[in-house]
Amino acid sequence: MTTPLRRTVLYAALAAGAFVSVFPYLLVVLTAFKTRRQLSTTEPWLPGLPPSTANLAEILGGDFPRFLLNTVVMTALLTLGQLVFTTFAAYAFARLRFRGRDVLFWLYVATMMVPSAVTVIPLFLIMRELEAVNTWYGLLAPYILGTPYGIFLMRQFFKSLPGGLEEAARIDGAGPLTILFRILLPLCRPAIGTLAIITVISSWNSFLWPLIITSGDETKVVTVAISALKVGIGVDRGLMMAGGLIALAPMVAIFIFFQKYIVRSVVLTGLK
């Protein structure tokens, strides 16, 4: 196969893959701007003419903005907690010496092999005994103190840093916290950025735990709110797609403005 033909085949395959990846999002946009009549009279992949903003106006006129704010608060708190507690735990596992350190670390990391669905019921029972069902505490507590993946990622990055930097700081009289904040953390910006991006995306798209632990509007998030957009025994597709479009917009904005850092995070995650 000649080089031009090979390049043409490659670009055609990439274009087909890109179309398959983007097509579901295109359907969300097209469906969100259709009336109920247009949904039944036009093909799903064709736009409704004229476009209608009735679905967006209806969903924004209800409690959906409140659920969107709840999601923003939940994502911000989880991301902040993950960055703080994960960094401290990873530093302890990577740099501090104490008995049973490696055994404790690998036992903790081994919990990544346990599906999250297995732990949902025990977590719910614990939160019920603590009277934390349908509260912000119950929503945040299981995940705000760090995750095995995040601690593993940060620990591996800490261990990749030269040990001589830490030894030189100790000779100058620096303590563990001074070494962490003034020497190691500035060098860990790529790993911190990776962890922040992963946490924001996973927290924003979280569904199973918020669905189980919350039942009132005070703590309901957008994923749960969208799943509840049903009319009788059917589903109002236009309304659900309007909610999905609103929930999708922040993630698209994050990708557009932080594309370079997202690509770097993917590379860093693969290397680690």
Rank of each mutant, 00 (worst) to 15 (best):
R6Q: 02
D172M: 06
A141H: 10
F257D: 04
Y11P: 00
R37A: 09
G193C: 12
T199E: 15
F207Y: 14
P122H: 08
S21Q: 07
L125M: 14
R170G: 06
L248Q: 06
L77V: 13
G193Y: 10
L184C: 10
W136C: 10
V266K: 05
V84F: 13
G48V: 06
Q82F: 04
V200M: 12
N70E: 09
A196I: 11
A92C: 08
T42N: 12
T31H: 10
T147P: 02
F257Q: 03
V20A: 12
V114F: 09
I151A: 05
A13L: 15
T41G: 05
W45H: 03
I226T: 12
K230D: 14
G175T: 12
A228H: 13
L68Q: 06
L187Q: 12
T214E: 04
I233P: 15
Y261T: 15
S21G: 04
A247F: 08
M74E: 04
T119Q: 02
W45C: 00
F257H: 03
L49P: 01
E43T: 14
N205R: 02
L69F: 11
T41H: 06
A94E: 11
G146E: 08
R182A: 08
F158N: 10
W204H: 08
A132Q: 12
T111W: 05
P250W: 15
Q156C: 10
L177I: 13
Y25L: 14
V103E: 01
A110F: 09
V22E: 02
Y108Q: 03
L49G: 02
L180C: 09
F181G: 10
A15Q: 00
K159S: 12
L39Q: 11
L268M: 06
L187M: 08
S21F: 14
P24V: 07
L27D: 04
R6F: 13
L268R: 01
Y108C: 07
T194V: 07
F19N: 00
W209Q: 10
L39N: 07
L123E: 11
G232P: 15
L26C: 05
V72L: 14
L239N: 06
T2H: 11
E43C: 01
G193S: 14
L229D: 05
P44G: 01
Y149D: 01
R189N: 10
R95T: 06
V109Y: 05
I246M: 12
P250N: 09
T35K: 00
L69C: 00
R97I: 11
T87C: 05
M112H: 04
L208Y: 01
F207V: 03
A110R: 03
L239M: 15
M251C: 09
G238V: 12
P51S: 08
G138D: 01
W204N: 11
G193K: 07
I201L: 14
A242C: 08
M240P: 00
D63L: 07
L46A: 09
R66C: 02
V120P: 13
I179L: 12
T86W: 05
Y11R: 01
L153P: 07
L39E: 06
V84Y: 03
L104M: 10
R170W: 05
A196R: 10
A228I: 12
L211D: 10
T35N: 00
T194S: 15
V133Q: 07
A54K: 09
M240Y: 06
A92M: 04
G48K: 15
A169T: 13
L125A: 15
L30H: 08
R36S: 11
M240T: 05
V29T: 07
R36L: 04
C188K: 05
Q38V: 04
